[in-house]
Amino acid sequence: MESLEDVDFAKAYEHPLPDALSIWEIVLHVAATNETVTKRLHGVPATMTPEEDWASIETADAGSWQTAP
């Protein structure tokens, strides 16, 4: 999280390379994976759909980036 403190909305949403993921998309993926693994470690069966694993960005604005997981 500390590494993301200075990443603003524009940088997080940017796709600097064709077909590459944005910082924001990677953050959403890591958060979803962390949640699933945490549930499993606590004995709760958990799986992810492809949409949960690589979630799309619903609202692309600065406020949404600040509240992203």
Results as ranks from 00 to 15, higher is better:
2 E>V: 12
31 A>D: 14
3 S>H: 10
23 I>A: 07
61 D>I: 12
59 T>K: 04
3 S>G: 09
61 D>Y: 07
56 S>F: 15
52 E>M: 01
30 V>H: 12
55 A>F: 01
5 E>L: 14
63 G>D: 08
5 E>D: 15
49 T>E: 14
51 E>N: 12
43 G>I: 11
12 A>T: 11
55 A>R: 13
19 D>W: 05
30 V>S: 00
14 E>F: 08
47 T>P: 02
13 Y>L: 08
7 V>D: 10
8 D>V: 11
35 E>S: 04
27 V>F: 03
42 H>Q: 15
10 A>F: 14
12 A>Q: 00
5 E>I: 04
7 V>C: 05
1 M>Q: 15
20 A>G: 06
26 I>A: 08
59 T>I: 09
4 L>N: 02
57 I>R: 01
69 P>A: 02
34 N>K: 09
46 A>R: 02
39 K>N: 09
23 I>M: 02
4 L>R: 06
32 A>P: 10
27 V>L: 09
32 A>L: 02
68 A>K: 11
3 S>Q: 12
27 V>G: 01
46 A>P: 00
18 P>N: 15
30 V>Y: 04
33 T>V: 11
56 S>T: 14
19 D>H: 06
35 E>P: 00
6 D>H: 15
32 A>C: 04
2 E>C: 08
26 I>T: 11
43 G>D: 01
20 A>H: 07
49 T>M: 10
52 E>Y: 07
16 P>T: 01
7 V>G: 05
17 L>G: 12
20 A>I: 01
69 P>V: 05
16 P>G: 08
23 I>G: 03
58 E>Y: 01
44 V>H: 07
19 D>N: 12
40 R>M: 05
21 L>Y: 12
28 L>M: 03
30 V>I: 14
69 P>R: 05
51 E>F: 08
63 G>K: 10
29 H>F: 11
41 L>P: 00
51 E>I: 07
55 A>T: 04
45 P>K: 05
65 W>R: 02
59 T>M: 09
28 L>K: 02
8 D>P: 00
25 E>V: 03
65 W>V: 03
16 P>M: 01
68 A>D: 02
15 H>F: 03
66 Q>M: 06
34 N>T: 03
67 T>E: 15
62 A>F: 05
62 A>V: 15
7 V>L: 07
39 K>L: 06
33 T>M: 13
42 H>F: 05
59 T>G: 04
31 A>E: 03
39 K>E: 09
52 E>F: 08
63 G>Q: 14
58 E>G: 07
67 T>L: 15
63 G>N: 13
43 G>Q: 02
66 Q>V: 14
64 S>Y: 08
64 S>K: 12
42 H>R: 07
29 H>N: 09
10 A>H: 04
52 E>H: 04
15 H>Y: 03
8 D>L: 03
56 S>P: 01
